[in-house]
Design a protein around this nucleic acid. Structure first.
Lengths: 137, 137
DNA sequence: TATAAATTCTATAAATATAGTATAGTTTAG
DNA sequence: CTAAACTATACTATATTTATAGAATTTATA
């Protein structure tokens, strides 16, 4: 399941993607438009900035805008940024790999192989969902 | 990500599936064999019993055994029993459906459709992984 | 050029929920 | 009487979600 943070991040990106190019959206505008608690959204936007999905302009008339193409922002990336690994266990994860403490060896672990299969399929599906694919036409 | 509970449940089922038919395994035996904290495992086995995956015999010489075919126990079912919905948000879930409070209507929600796509794919993948498919030959 | 206003940015607190584990016992069957 | 499942609960730690308070930065304007 997605955390609220990840869900709100997606909705915020979607909001930004729907604006005219060169438009700068301030937080309160996004919060109202996408129905997100403003102060929570501030933190999320900063995370998105650190992840180089958006950039910001400070001061009066400042705000946020996309710096990554909406075709290149995938659900998989947002999931990883806010909710971490896509795999069902760390031992099956590409980006958040960790060995299980309760397995002797990975090849002996009967779960490992099945979980890698699942990871490959969900990853492929999640990489197919982009912000652009979600934007209402 | 799977909770430890779900992971341990899978390993316990796997252990049971590897035993001879008619063999009854006591908790401590499964705990040692699959490297699971015994008291935690007790709770998990009871959950599996309530879910009608295993049954038990009480008293001396008691223990647990599978009552569902290993071909019919899927990762999807275990996920649902211990970790709930497979979908990324409740509004996209079949078995744990709940509307989002922050969306006006579902059809207007730009996330909804994409998340249903993902759910269908991961569900299909998870239903393909059975205990039988995981058991070492 | 100084000041005020609008905004992002930072840090932290609080409330709630969840996860994981441990404790202590009751009940049942052999 | 003993070994096992079963029940209840309590504790600890962590994560999540949201809120609070203010610092820093930019721009407009007097």
């Amino acid at each position: 399941m997605l955390s609220h943070k990840a869900k709100y991040a997606l909705k915020a990106l979607l909001y930004l993607a729907e604006q005219d190019e060169n438009h700068i959206s301030k937080t309160i505008e996004i919060a109202d438009g996408a129905n997100i608690p403003k102060k929570f959204l501030e933190q999320i936007l900063l995370d998105l900035k650190r992840g180089r999905f958006v950039s910001s302009k400070q001061g009066k008339f400042g705000g946020y805008y996309l710096i990554k193409s909406k075709n290149d922002i995938t659900l998989a990336e947002i999931h990883r940024l806010f909710d971490g690994a896509i795999a069902l266990l760390p031992c099956a994860s590409l980006n958040f790999y960790e060995p299980c403490s309760d397995c002797k060896t990975e090849s002996e672990c009967s779960l490992h192989h099945g979980l890698v299969l699942i990871r490959d399929k969900t990853l492929k599906a999640m990489e197919g969902i982009t912000i652009a694919s979600l934007v209402k036409k």
